[in-house]
Amino acid sequence: MSQVAAVGAFDEEQLELRKTVRALLAKHSDPGAVRRATETEQGYDTALWEMLCQQVGVAALAIPEEFGGIGASAVETHLVLEELGRTLAPTPMLGSVVLGAQAILASGDTEACERLLPGIAEGTAVAALCWTGADGSWDTESVDVVATATGDGHSLTGASHFVLDGSYADVLVVAAAIDGAVALFEVDPAQESVSRRRLPTMDPTRTLSVVEFDGASARLLTTDGTAALERVRQIACVALSAEQIGAAAQSLDLTVEYSKSRVQFGRPIGSFQALKHRMADLYFLVETARSASYGAVRSLVDGAPTAATDAAVAKVYCSEALQSVAADSIQLHGGIAITWEHDAQLYFKRAHGSAQLFGQPRGYLKSLESAAGLPA
């Protein structure tokens, strides 16, 4: 789907939302601002996040009106994430709004939704989903944290790894094993029995942390954590693909612009036929990834029977597309692209870091092959 064709897939309000977010990011999230934000204690620009939430309402989009949100579809959130991916702007959008809020919604606990979601929708509170163990498997049926029933609730022991926004979240939603099953719990991170530390990451624009529990008090949200996590993972893969196509498109744009200004043998390198063909291939890759991503979010919103498959396809294809585009961008820029001062290396790091989120692409490929009845 070309960008022109994609316009027809959205209504005027959705296109205006995209335009508004892009304009705000162009003004407040230039490359220098992104780098400064990564060096803050939280790892993101709190002032920018406040503007996005208060002026545009990005955190409230996919939260139902009865819980303080706008009640829009996942499409609106998708467009916002695509623009955030273009600039690599670090925000709690993916960690808090997509993972945290959607996990609370998926739990079906009305009281928790009424109490927690309004703050997330306003952007005044940040939620984090504590899910995977040290192996980074994002398994929905096996987790490292263990829950034990107590007289007045539950206590948690163990550690969650690769927690998006976990080092500064105001509320933790924790996947923990109990009685041979996976359940979801709400945990107050202010407890002394909860310790958090931010991890050094290859991608400086993505904040990850380890959260450890040593008998932490927890409130049960749902005993069917596996079903809730399956739903969240599907939503997360689709949302991540939006970030990835935004980043891939911008990485390609930067490369094309460089090829017009870089002169070799007395002419711009972009005029050489071999490089024209190479960039045309990259353009095709970006646009087909865009089609996969847009198709997945439409399936998700429509509740299509193929929604889970489409989400997996978007996860695999968009991950590989961004990695390919970012790698070729490094090569086409030459040695300059591996220096800290140039943006190309940031897109390269985002590409490889995001591909590992919510499970490696090869894991989804095996699932797709199995579902299609293909030999392993």
Score class of each variant (00 low, 15 high):
A37G: 10
D328K: 03
G8W: 00
H28P: 00
G270P: 06
L184A: 07
R231Y: 00
P31A: 05
A47V: 13
A74G: 12
I269F: 00
C53S: 14
T110S: 10
L164V: 09
D11Q: 06
D188Q: 11
C237W: 11
D144K: 02
Q3F: 14
Y364N: 00
E122F: 00
G215C: 07
A101V: 03
D179H: 04
L25T: 05
R35N: 07
L184C: 03
A227E: 14
D224G: 02
L240C: 01
D214I: 02
V80D: 04
A74K: 06
A175L: 09
L25R: 02
E141V: 09
A106C: 08
A247C: 07
S160N: 11
A289W: 07
S217I: 00
T157Q: 09
S291P: 00
E230K: 10
S2G: 15
V238E: 03
T40M: 06
S291R: 10
F67I: 13
T110I: 12
L24K: 05
V126T: 15
V146H: 13
H28Y: 14
T38R: 09
G180Y: 14
R219F: 14
E16D: 13
G225H: 11
A249W: 12
F358T: 09
E230D: 13
E50L: 01
A274N: 06
R86E: 09
Q14V: 01
G225Y: 13
S329G: 15
Y258M: 02
P90L: 08
L88I: 08
A289M: 08
I120D: 09
A72W: 00
Q42M: 10
T222S: 08
H333G: 15
V58R: 02
A321S: 14
Y258K: 02
A147S: 06
A321Q: 03
G225N: 09
H277R: 08
